[in-house]
Design a protein around this nucleic acid. Sequence first.
DNA 1: GATAAATGGTCAAGTTGCTTGACTATGTGG
DNA 2: CCACATAGTCAAGCAACTTGACCATTTATC
Lengths: 148, 148
Amino acid sequence: MHTSEAMALSAALLSVAGELTHRINEGVVARGFEGVRPAHGFAFARLAPDGATVTDLAAHLGVTKQAASQLVEEIVRKGYAERRPHPEDARARLVVLTERGWACTRAAEEAAAEAVGAWVELLGEGEVRVLRQQLGRIAPYGPLRPAW
Amino acid sequence: MHTSEAMALSAALLSVAGELTHRINEGVVARGFEGVRPAHGFAFARLAPDGATVTDLAAHLGVTKQAASQLVEEIVRKGYAERRPHPEDARARLVVLTERGWACTRAAEEAAAEAVGAWVELLGEGEVRVLRQQLGRIAPYGPLRPAW
DNA sequence: GATAAATGGTCAAGTTGCTTGACTATGTGG
DNA sequence: CCACATAGTCAAGCAACTTGACCATTTATC
């Protein structure tokens, strides 16, 4: 693998990632959820199963807990989540999605499916499955960082 | 392709993209080029062949020309590029990389090769080649947008 | 050719999403 | 019980963008 090939692979990957993010966000907005940014989607993904604390979110997003706190304040104000007392720790608060938050998450899934659908038309279903498996194997466990 | 699979693919792709960006930037800094952000790398990629105007850069990066102008001002101040009069248009200025800018670009290529090398160890060279070809086929032609 | 409109670039001010620093409230270990 | 760590927020500052205004030059229209 020459350095130029590595650069071409990197450029293609980042280009595809940028386009995908853009399309998902567009699709979410088109489904009636305004005032949401891509970063919110990654927060929703962490909140979705059982909720999370602000500190959990901060680690997941790779930002300070103050930034995570501000983000939570924003999505609470917009009706996508709510703060509940934590059942085991009186200092902490459990942030959980509201019904609107769940609806927005489903909209993001639909938009993602649409974007991936365009790849299926280009590569075929089998190749896209291969792509998913390959990316899954090299995906890190660390925080979701902004791409640049 | 179910929506949950599309979501898993999207998450893996964005995760890999974020990690790749982080590693390339770390590698560039480790090679002695401080004060550079990932966005600069994408500007360098556009400037590398024959230089570009501020307006070209703005379109390439998907930002306003004012933002592109500020970015050029910054990389000029840091010694990575310089402004020259445009040979055909007295309004425009051709922004070209300095020798230090070229050295930084080579450092980014080396760092990218390192990051991709880790994937080769996980997937094997053949699979990575497949990955590159697949991504190349679905990569858009539009501007390089920040992933989120 | 003259003149209106479009284009390349910059200056200035405002917005936003993040940071660091300071603080309170609650939990944990000596 | 007391020192220290942790969850969360408030406040101020910063950095990378935005919008709006403007000048210099080129292109289009008559």
